[in-house]
């Protein structure tokens, strides 16, 4: 289970960079990566070390256990075997021990190629989610009829588990990339639309009035006030959307999902290659956290006024 939105609930207004809300005071001029609370990193590293020790303990053969690990490798592979799976997935290696034929990575692709294929799908799905979700949100926020008629469908769509309708998408759009991108798009656009609506309804009336009194045309009001005013909410929406897309990615890649990190995780599981499955899970999780950090950083750079005005 990936939780790519780690930290969102603690800093809904992106104030994690605020030097006054933590026990530590770091100079305001310091770059944000310095301002990340250092004490948290020691805690996190200690927790990781403890986790690895427990993992090692459970998967190492013990004499008192009849030279067997407490958990069998099929259920929980050992740390070295996961590491080997990771190396195999990134190199050209013999197809099996003692066999001359060599193969590339896993199922013909290096691990990074699997990851890249997935990132591409998510990127395209997210791109269309923004292209559709943002204008739809603006429309719904400004035209009552549209909002009243479309909102139930968005809520309906949001409540569906992606596994429920991937089969339908495959029937409609084929088993290749198109149906996968559709699934990621459908997972990603509702949060963007909803965030846009929330952003528009949060605009102070007088901010619009002020622009109009300065002579702004309708279009100028949108470009100078509406769009920047909703930017913080929009970025939050994109962040949530990306998280949804990630948690949907295995479902999207269940069928014909190679190359694809989600497809690889699923396929390796069905073939009982648990070390490889765990490698995939770790890569999926770390990538999700990295992507989320990138968006959080963009938030600070693009909308520095968030929570301040």
């Amino acid at each position: 289970m990936v939780i790519p939105l780690e930290g969102l609930e603690y800093h809904p207004s992106g104030s994690s960079a605020d030097p006054h809300d933590g026990p530590q005071t770091v100079s305001k001029s310091a770059p944000f990566w310095v301002r990340v609370r250092k004490s948290h990193w020691t805690t996190r590293l200690t927790a990781l070390a403890a986790f690895l020790v427990v993992w090692w303990f459970l998967t190492t053969p013990w004499a008192w256990n009849g030279d067997k690990p407490i958990m069998l490798p099929l259920y929980l592979p050992s740390i070295p075997s996961v590491w080997n799976a990771f190396i195999r997935a990134n190199t050209i290696h013999p197809i099996a021990e003692g066999v001359d034929r060599e193969v590339v990575g896993e199922y013909g692709y290096y691990l990074w190629q699997h990851l890249l294929a997935t990132l591409q799908r998510i990127g395209i799905g997210l791109f269309f989610a923004i292209v559709v979700g943002l204008p739809l949100g603006l429309l719904m926020a400004s035209v009552k009829i549209i909002s009243v008629s479309v909102e139930p469908y968005i809520n309906f769509l949001r409540s569906l588990p992606p596994l429920g309708y991937i089969g339908l998408l495959i029937v409609w759009f084929g088993i290749d990339n198109t149906s996968k991108i559709w699934l990621l798009f459908l997972a990603a656009f509702p949060p963007i639309t909803i965030a846009t609506i929330a952003g528009v309804s949060g605009i102070k009336e007088d901010q619009i009035h002020a622009a109009q009194s300065l002579g702004a045309s309708r279009l100028q009001v949108v470009s100078s006030v509406t769009v920047p005013a909703i930017a913080p909410d929009l970025i939050t929406g994109i962040r949530v959307a990306l998280g949804f897309a990630w948690t949907t990615v295995v479902a999207a890649e269940l069928n014909n999902g190679i190359p694809g990190i989600g497809g690889l995780a699923y396929l390796s599981g069905t073939e009982l290659k648990t070390p490889l499955t765990i490698t995939c899970i770790i890569v999926i999780g770390i990538t999700a956290i990295a992507l989320d950090s990138i968006i959080k950083a963009m938030e600070r750079v693009l909308t520095p006024w968030r929570g301040k005005a």
Binding site: H209, A210, G215, P228, A231, A309
Partner: peptide, 27 residues
């Protein structure tokens, strides 16, 4: 509303996404 009638609001409605000079230049 129109640019012939400028309004100074009771609580300032400046735009935080622009610097002070850009706010002043907006009209």
């Amino acid at each position: 509303p129109g640019p012939d009638r400028g309004v100074v609001f009771q609580s300032p409605t400046l735009y935080p996404w622009m610097d002070v000079a850009s706010n002043v230049e907006l009209g």
